[in-house]
Amino acid sequence: MQFALARGFHFLEVLQLLVSGISQGCVYGLIALGFVLIYKATEMVNFAQGDLMMLGAFFAYSYINIFELPFYLAFPATILTMAIIGALTERLLLRPMIGEPHFSVLMLTIGLGFILRAVAGAIWGNEPRSLSTPYAGGVIDLNGLIIGYENMVIILGTAALCLLLYLFFRFTRLGLAMQAASQNQLAAFYVGIPVKRVYSMVWAISASISAVAGILVAPVSLIDPLMGFVGIKAFAAAIVGGFGSLPGAIVGGLIIGIVEQFAGLYLPPGFSDVSAYVILLAMLLIRPQGIFASMQRKKV
């Protein structure tokens, strides 16, 4: 094994890695956001979040490449479809599980992930597909620092979505209701918040965020039924950031995205793939509550 550290750091190279790390990290962050959103509101952990992203990417592919809708129509159509699928999933699978132990819900969503992968494989097949977008292929050259339009769109899109979510939770009735339901299911119900409907909405929003992640990432990586496995890395991101914290999800995603890029270049092969998990384990050892802590121990 030959360590590449000897090659030294070139400023431009570092910058280039940083940009692709950030763009990859944004994707992790977006999926992590979906995890955290559902966890915050319902205390359920959705292990199928990555697979919802995969489904979103496939729907976008169908609308654009098969039905030949223009991008500006296909984009909202995909989000709407995924919102409906998210809400349906909650209604049909998760609602019977309200009040069951966390472990059962976790297992259920793992099962759901397997089902979604099989269904996607059945509908779209297993060969990788690529999504055509209006911004494909272009690059910006900043004095030698090359940024692809796709990466640019990922970063800007993530930023915009975060702003939107912030405004939503801070200022809308529904956003506040979701926060209330996340504190205490029973109390929220008593003060007249339709907890069940709120849960459906949360799933719809979370699935939509995954759909956006799917559309953003599709031009860079190809679409196939197994692409949802990045969900596991996103999960690591959510925990590194502090499970239950929305900004934490994005920060965690960025950390993992960036470290992965650097590990890929400067460390022996294999390290890049596991770096996310090494960070996760290290984090759990040093500061298990994550960067933005929000856990508290049970009161007696």
Binding site: Q185, G244, S294, M295, R297
Partner: peptide, 10 residues
Amino acid sequence: RSYLRTERLK
């Protein structure tokens, strides 16, 4: 079933 199981601060 249990409907009250929060471990969180916010």
